[in-house]
Design a protein around this nucleic acid. Sequence first.
DNA 1: ATCCTACAATAGACAATGTCTAAAGCAAGT
DNA 2: ACTTGCTTTAGACATTGTCTATTGTAGGAT
Lengths: 138, 138
Amino acid sequence: MSDLLERLRGRGWRMTAQRRVVAEVLDGEHVHLTADEVHARAVAKLPEISRATVYNTLGELVTLGEVLEVSTDQRAKRYDPNAHQPHHHLVCAQCGAIRDVHPTGNPLADLPDTERFGFTVSDVEVTYRGVCPNCAAA
Amino acid sequence: MSDLLERLRGRGWRMTAQRRVVAEVLDGEHVHLTADEVHARAVAKLPEISRATVYNTLGELVTLGEVLEVSTDQRAKRYDPNAHQPHHHLVCAQCGAIRDVHPTGNPLADLPDTERFGFTVSDVEVTYRGVCPNCAAA
DNA sequence: ATCCTACAATAGACAATGTCTAAAGCAAGT
DNA sequence: ACTTGCTTTAGACATTGTCTATTGTAGGAT
């Protein structure tokens, strides 16, 4: 994670206590937090950090390619620190838990030219939905 | 589309002018409208229809399985009248245009048991992203 | 070490989308 | 026609996110 901070500094990112805290929160838990969850954890470490700063910083990290934005539901965006390994997501329809998954095959190859309607297709997101073991047990 | 209204009536749906108008809007254009776009078109046909009614009616149509809810971006949910034929979506990253597509292969089969983490996986959504011919020309 | 300056943080207003409530309206069975 | 219970309505409220004007500060220049 000092990796992350080093990389950011190397790109001319001005280092501030707020940005360090946001980066630490993302790096510390390998789950997919919403912006407000990141804010709550950041406040625990740095009580005076504002919501706008968290949003700004998350946006910058996404722009820099250090964090991915994931939208598995239509509520809040979630932020995925696992930006350097391609993967898809498996989501629990009941509790919203998210796991990173690595399906076999290449879905891009599964879209024939006749189904591309002249688009330049560059990316594909696959979201599996189901019920997690916890929710199934309940 | 009288098909749709008949099916709904057969399921005990009380028919009202408002619901008829919402169903007509969805059936009339085979695009993927947001709730507010549906509302705008509904108002053109029935000026006194309220926003809440449009939201309620869309929610009911989704529950009844006559319309699909699609979230291809972070902003508004979109409503897809093509609920009876499975398909995925191709989205323009610039203008947000959406096309229904039918990839070959079965992505559900591409998720090995070792990547399911005990989930009961029931569904998969594939979203292709790219640039549409219009935006590429601009 | 201190100063400067441009970049960053802040509080809070604002915006977009969606949900809820309480009162009034009305479809359809009797 | 009457009645009943489902529907509609307006608008308040909730959630998530963005913008703005002001204040603060990191880090290079001196």
